[in-house]
Each structure stands twice: as C-alpha cells, then as structure tokens.
Simulated assay, not measured.
Amino acid sequence: MRSISLIFILLIFFGCKDEYKRSFKITKVEIKDILTDSTFSIRALEFNNEYIFYGSIDHFGRKTLQSEFKIDLTEIVISDQKVHDRYRIKNDSVFLHFRAIEEVNGNLFALSIGNPAKLFKLYRKARKPRLVYEEVNEKVFYDALVFWNENEGIAIGDPTENCMSIIITRDSGESWSKISCSDLPVALDGEAAFAASDTNITTVGDHTWLATGGKSSRVLYSPDKGVTWQVFETPIIQGKSTTGMYSIDFYDQNNGFAIGGDYTKPNDVTANKIRTSDGGKTWQVVANGKGPGYRSCVQYVPNSNGKELVAIGFKGIDYSNDAGDSWTHLSDKGFYTVRFLNDSIAYAAGRGRISKLTFR
C-alpha cells in the first residue's frame, strides 16, 4: 500500500509539473556563464538533455551538460564528465563559419555561411560530421536552419538568383534540394536575410514563416512545409542594407512577433518591433519610440499565452509581459541569440561565452 501511495504521489507531481505556469512578472535575470572562450562569436545555439550545441566564427561544437553522479549509502561522489568537442573544418585554408545549426533527436546539423555553403550532419555519439549538402556560388550565404519534424527541414539564405535561397530535406537530412525560383516569390532589390541569431525562420506545425531584411523586409509564408509560398509586407524599418527584421517567432498559428532595426544605430527605437495576430498576413508596429532598440533575437516565453517576450542583442536583454506593447530592460550584458528551456530558464550565447539565464 505504501509503494502504491508513493507512485500515486509521483504521478501527481510530474503531471502537475507539465502543466506548471509561472505566476509572476519577470523583474530580473541572473546570468551564469557555463562556457567561456575569447575566440567565440556564437550566433546559433541549440540544446537537449545531454548537450549544448553552438555555431561559432571558426567551428561548431557540442558540450555535455550533465555530470555523472555515483551514489552510495554514505556519500555522494561526483565525477565531472563534461566533454567539449569542437569541429573545425577548412575550405582551402580558411575555417568555415557556422551561424545556423539544428538538433534533431541527438543528431546535429551545422550550416556554414559564405561560398561554398556546406551543410554537415553530426550523428548522435559520432566523432566525425558528414557533408550532406554543398552549394558553390559567389552570392551564396545561408542564414538559418530549422526542422518541422525528425524527417523534414528547411534552411534560408540570401538570393543567388531572383528569389531567396531555400533548401529542403524530406529524408532526415541525408539529402537536400534547392527550391526553384519559379516556385518562390521574386526577391525585391536589396532584399536578403540576416545571419544574426539563427532565428529568421520559425515554424508551428506545418506552417513556416521566413523573415527577410535589408532594403526590403518582408515575410515569406508557407502553410504546407515549403510546398507553396506567399509573401506579406511589413511596416518594420527598411530601406538600407542594415535595416529590417533580424528575428521572428510565432507562439501559435496566429500570433507572431519580429524584431530588428539597424545594427549600425542600435539605440534607434523607431519601427523596429512588429506584431501580427492573423498568421502574418498583416503586421503592426508596437512600442514605437520606446523599448529596446536594435535586437538580434526575440523569443516567446513558453507557457505565457503569447504575452511574454524576451529580446536579446549586443546592447542587452529586454522583457515584455504584454505582447510587446511595453518593455523592461533587464541587463546590459550583450548576447546574440537565446533559446528557452522552460518559462524561467534559457541559454544565451554571444561574443566569448554561452550563459544560463534564470528569469525571476
């Protein structure tokens, strides 16, 4: 009877844990560095329950997050097994630069910027990555990568012809094919994308939104995992090669948010934050003239009903609890990208470090 009661209590505990929703407004963030290196410049970050993965200026890497615990009746002996693997890959004599990565069931995909673009798959527990896609073109520059499910994924890059570069896999990343420009909206003059945080693609179910930037900054939308495409205009600041959306996120099929601005004028708060409630068809400027200036990454806080957002950039960390209408500046410490573990903990990365953020 005692064992049955214990099982019942554990079931209640873990069941309630899944439904937990934070009931307080975030007022501060605690930052703890977990990996530091002055050579890092990290703009892509992923993690699972074993590793944290990242893409940096001359390599991509993975570091184990867990330690091995050996327990006996008298004491706890902790053996730290935190392994850090770095993968430096050269093209001719130059190290490839990785700004787009994705973890799928323990397998890591890492996509390099510049010519040639090379996409590698690092299998779970493998020591050597395998090249699964390569593209040679003077204009090639890939910016972000995401998977809809364990089999299907997509990456976006700057135009090499008259449309955005989009590659898709349907076989778990073993092979990739580029969508023809005849099946995509025509890119406008000076329209491209920014490899600032690996977050100018976002998905909800089969729905996909891609954020472009530069002289024109629009949203490309697919309702069917990249088979068909539409394009929607946005009111975000644009017109220069350094302006537009740098990051986009959707909480559900209707509610989305994008942030950016002009990184050469990071304190400018004019028309750099936009929101949609109709799946991206129309967008409205919010917090115009206030709140954070240029930011490279925005993410919805999990379990927040689409109301809470965190924006990150080299000028610091900001938080909103009213869907972007108002903002609280939490820290001046700069990062490039962030990913949430739950509604109170996230990992962020930037120049020289990866850090754990605890929001309170």
Rank of each mutant, 00 (worst) to 15 (best):
S38E: 15
I76P: 01
I52V: 15
G306Y: 08
S182D: 15
G61L: 02
F257Y: 15
V146F: 02
N342I: 03
A258F: 07
G256A: 06
G214V: 06
G261K: 12
I9M: 05
Y246G: 05
L145W: 01
S247I: 00
K333R: 15
L96Y: 01
L111V: 08
K21M: 05
I345P: 00
I167K: 03
F359L: 01
V301C: 00
N149G: 05
G157H: 10
P266I: 12
F257G: 04
T282K: 12
A348M: 07
V231E: 15
D332C: 02
K25R: 13
D58I: 04
G289M: 09
G153T: 09
G260A: 05
I76T: 13
F314I: 03
F250L: 06
I52G: 01
G244A: 13
K356N: 04
S182A: 14
L341T: 02
Y319L: 01
I236A: 14
A100C: 00
L220M: 13
N49T: 10
S165H: 08
F232W: 13
V298L: 04
S241A: 15
G291Q: 12
I78E: 14
K82L: 11
I101T: 03
G350F: 08
E135R: 14
I274M: 11
L65E: 07
S217C: 13
R43L: 07
A117V: 14
V298W: 00
T203Y: 01
K307A: 14
H59S: 10
Q81V: 13
V286P: 14
L111T: 07
V227Y: 03
Y336F: 12
S331I: 03
G306M: 12
T169G: 01
G350N: 03
A144Y: 00
I345Y: 02
S180F: 07
A126E: 09
T242I: 09
I101H: 00
I274T: 12
P266M: 10
L341G: 02
P223L: 05
R88H: 09
K281W: 07
N48D: 15
G214P: 06
I89H: 09
Q238T: 13
S277W: 11
G350C: 06
E152I: 13
A44H: 02
I12E: 00
F314N: 07
V77P: 00
W327N: 13
L220E: 09
L111E: 10
D206G: 06
G55D: 03
S23K: 06
I236E: 14
S241N: 13
K315N: 14
F13W: 01
N137Y: 07
D80H: 12
V338H: 04
K139L: 14
T234H: 11
R360N: 14
W209C: 06
I26A: 02
R339T: 03
A196W: 07
R360W: 04
F194P: 08
R218G: 01
D325V: 15
K121T: 00
D318R: 02
I52D: 04
L145F: 04
K63H: 05
S344M: 03
Q238P: 11
S277N: 11
K82P: 08
K315M: 08
G106A: 04
G15W: 01
D183H: 13
K290C: 11
T270L: 14
K28T: 12
V338G: 01
L210I: 15
G153K: 10
P129H: 04
I42M: 06
S79F: 10
G293Y: 08
